[in-house]
Computed example of a mutant assay.
Amino acid sequence: MANYGTEAGLAAYAASVGATVPAGAALPALVRASAYLDGRYGRRFVGTRAGGYAQPLAWPRDGAVTREGFAVPADAVPAAIENATYEAALRELAAPGSLSPDFVAAEQVKREKVGPLETEYRDVTALGADAARPVVTVIDEMLADLLCAPVPAVLVV
């Protein structure tokens, strides 16, 4: 499996944020984190895959330009991608599978009553599996400069 970053890079990033990486756990966490980044953000990254469809990961990319107008070399994986991967990997190490949890709509609880207390949960079944994924704001912020800007649209009915 392909991944962004290196085990040494993950260890350095972890040390910089006061975390540790258990021996032998870095590579699996990097693979899961890379898959998360590509799955969550891949369609929104600027540019196109430099190696075409057969390229296993979304980066490196052709025609990638940051929001500030700086060109990203077609053979480079930006530091922001690697750092976001390291952040995601640390979250995966803390709670394996948390970034891409399994989602079964039929198993979602709508109402729960325990004694006199009753709680009704938001119906996420219409939102699909993406609603089960957490929003990791720090990763969103790390990648903001490499994501396509939302296109303003008008809905005509």
Rank of each mutant, 00 (worst) to 15 (best):
L93G: 01
V77M: 03
E92D: 11
D38T: 11
A58Q: 12
F70S: 07
A19L: 12
L99W: 03
E82T: 15
G97V: 11
S100W: 13
L30G: 03
A89P: 03
A76Q: 14
F70P: 00
I81H: 00
A79T: 15
Y41W: 14
W59A: 00
G51N: 02
D62I: 06
A94W: 06
L90N: 04
A88C: 08
E68A: 13
E92C: 04
A71H: 05
L90Q: 06
P73M: 05
R91D: 00
G39C: 12
A25F: 08
V72L: 01
A50C: 07
L30E: 01
S100A: 15
S98N: 10
A19H: 12
V72N: 00
T85G: 07
S100Y: 08
A80E: 14
G18M: 12
G47T: 03
R91Q: 11
T20N: 14
V65A: 01
A35G: 15
E87L: 12
R32H: 14
R49A: 08
A29P: 04
P96S: 08
P78T: 05
V77A: 01
G69W: 02
L93K: 06
G51R: 00
A35K: 09
V65E: 02
L27M: 13
E82K: 13
A50E: 05
R40A: 07
P60H: 05
D75E: 12
P22F: 14
W59T: 01
A25S: 15
G24Y: 13
V17Q: 09
E87Y: 04
L37S: 03
A15D: 14
I81K: 00
A95W: 10
A15V: 11
A33G: 07
R44L: 14
V72G: 00
T48H: 07
S16G: 12
A58Y: 01
A54F: 07
P96G: 07
R67L: 13
L90Y: 06
G63K: 09
L37T: 04
V46D: 02
A89R: 02
A19M: 14
L30V: 11
G51T: 04
W59Y: 10
V31F: 09
L27W: 06
A25V: 10
R61A: 01
L37A: 03
P60T: 05
Y41Q: 10
P56W: 08
A23H: 14
R67H: 10
